[in-house]
């Protein structure tokens, strides 16, 4: 009892919350409640990210996913909802299809995840090392920022000689500058495209209501 592993404890906590609310999203038929459960599920997932030492990604998940995308989703729900508390109805055959496909997929993924011994966690010898690694606050923001600009400082650890470092730095393909630029342009395109799509037009008279 003395040796409670806090990483495991918080992993259990966050993963149970994430999974339980993900299932609640599926089972709920009220769309606003679905969005609420999704918020909790994604927030718990960001907790998992923090736990796994990816603090920048965790904060990003909270900021962009939960704080941005989901507010947008709820906004969309409110804009398109026709009456208060409309219930979503699902057809029986889509449930059957979904559950069959889902259970099959889950079985496959579980089998794969548990199939590799090395993924089951650190070995006995690595235990102390792991404890120490998780006891330290992680600092990933600067390396990720560098990587996005094409400088992989995390790859420099191998050799301390300037020549080896130069080789890594001139490797070219190790950084993410090009994907970063592509994503920036992509976001700009999305910004313009979404604004164009969602602008108010004269409504057509063929509406069914």
């Amino acid at each position: 009892m003395d040796a409670i592993n806090w990483h495991t404890f918080f992993f259990l906590l966050f993963s149970l919350v994430a999974c339980a609310f993900a299932i609640a999203v599926v089972l709920s038929s009220n769309i606003v409640r679905m969005a609420f459960y999704l918020i909790l599920s994604l927030a718990a997932t960001s907790g998992l990210f923090f736990l796994a030492g990816a603090d920048f990604v965790g904060a990003m998940q909270l900021m962009i996913y939960v704080g941005g995308t989901l507010v947008l989703l709820i906004f969309g729900v409110m804009l398109t909802n026709q009456g208060p508390y409309t219930m979503l109805k699902s057809r029986g055959d889509s449930w059957l299809l979904g559950v069959v496909a889902g259970v099959g997929l889950l079985a496959l993924l579980t089998y794969t995840a548990l199939g590799v011994r090395d993924w089951m966690g650190p070995t006995e010898e690595q235990l102390a090392e792991t404890q120490l690694a998780f006891a330290q606050p992680s600092a990933t923001a600067t390396p990720i920022g560098n990587a996005l600009l094409g400088i992989r400082v995390d790859k420099l650890n191998g050799g301390n000689e300037p020549d080896a470092q130069q080789q890594v730095l001139q490797g070219g393909m190790s950084g993410y500058l090009l994907p970063f630029e592509i994503v920036s342009v992509h976001l700009l395109v999305v910004l313009i495209g979404a604004a164009h799509l969602a602008r108010t037009k004269k409504r057509s008279d063929t509406r069914s209501t």
Partner: peptide, 19 residues
């Protein structure tokens, strides 16, 4: 660059937010 990343995040936010 840490700042740049945050700016990129803000850009993403802008894309998401301004719809």
């Amino acid at each position: 660059h840490a700042g740049d990343v945050a700016a990129a995040a803000a850009d993403g936010e802008a894309a998401a937010a301004s719809t």
